[in-house]
């Protein structure tokens, strides 16, 4: 039960959505794009969000694409995590997106919604952070295409009215060897998912022709990919133990300390995970 009213719009084009947004905004209706709605509904129920209007993006054709186009994987922002998972076009994204929430909810959570989520884990973004993803955004000035890292630091740096349309990833990233993991306070999460919960640590490692890329959620207050950390991981001159110590030094923010886990334990899990991942890539042919 959402204890207040809002207006619901389901436009059929991106331009319509954007102009609706600005219209409603000028009427002080605090409009929100509505993907799966899982966060908008659950936060509204608890008075943590108060949109007076929502704009459902699921009727926008561009947001519903999921296919390879000219050696690029194009994923519409309104595609649900389940649809991405079932398509199996990008196994790394399957895995990290496929460990968010639970199976039933994943059929409602959209990729765009997950990445813009207020809940700080946004695990689906990890796969995109390591694969030079580009984001296609529509706003009142038209369409733009930008590298994900240029508009993501601790969260998505979107202007009011910016509508995520699509994410694109070069095909070669979708076939690279990878390793991914998630742990919750209760223990390991295998894939397909078998432990529901927010991550203590959710991580992806992509092996780009011998160069490891990595991104993490749950460790710091926001998901991140750190080039500094990757430099350490890929440095062949340091011993595995030193790598772990140095890695901990180059995290972008203090380790999260919350009711699920202390920072010390998160660090312990992080070190274990790195060690496992390094082992994992040992001897892989490129």
């Amino acid at each position: 039960m959402i204890p207040f009213d809002f207006e619901y719009y389901k436009p059929t084009s991106a331009q319509e959505a954007v102009s609706l947004f600005h219209n409603l905004r000028s009427q002080e209706k605090n409009p929100m794009y509505y993907g799966g709605g899982t966060e908008i509904i659950s936060f509204s129920r608890l008075y943590q969000l108060f949109p007076k209007a929502v704009i459902d993006v699921k009727g926008i054709p561009e947001c519903n694409v999921l296919e390879f186009k000219n050696d690029k994987l194009v994923i519409g922002a309104a595609k649900t995590l389940s649809q991405v998972q079932e398509s199996n076009l990008f196994p790394l994204l399957n895995q990290c997106g496929g460990r968010v929430a639970d199976h039933t909810i994943r059929d409602k959570i959209t990729l765009g919604g997950n990445i813009c989520s207020r809940i700080p884990f946004r695990e689906a973004i990890l796969a995109l952070l390591v694969s030079d993803c580009e984001v296609i955004i529509e706003n009142k000035n038209g369409i733009r295409k930008v590298p994900l890292e240029s508009i993501y630091t601790e969260s998505m740096l979107l202007e009011p009215g910016d509508l995520l349309l699509q994410f694109t990833v070069e095909k070669n990233y979708t076939v690279m060897p990878f390793f991914s993991m998630k742990k919750t306070a209760d223990g390991d999460v295998d894939y397909p998912q078998d432990r529901i919960g927010y991550p203590l640590l959710s991580g992806v490692f992509l092996n780009n022709k011998g160069h490891i890329r990595a991104a993490f959620s749950g460790l710091c207050p926001y998901p991140f990919r750190s080039l500094k950390l990757e430099a350490v991981l890929n440095d062949t001159t340091v011993s595995p133990d030193e790598k772990l110590n140095e890695s901990v030094q180059c995290l972008p923010a203090p380790i999260l300390n919350d009711m699920d886990s202390s920072a010390q334990y998160r660090e312990f899990v992080f070190r274990n995970t790195l060690a496992g991942a390094l082992d994992n890539f040992e001897g892989v042919e490129f």
Partner: peptide, 12 residues
């Protein structure tokens, strides 16, 4: 497909 009807609007 299974959906949790507490996280879906009736209009959806």
């Amino acid at each position: 497909w299974p959906v949790k009807s507490c996280l879906m609007l009736a209009v959806e």
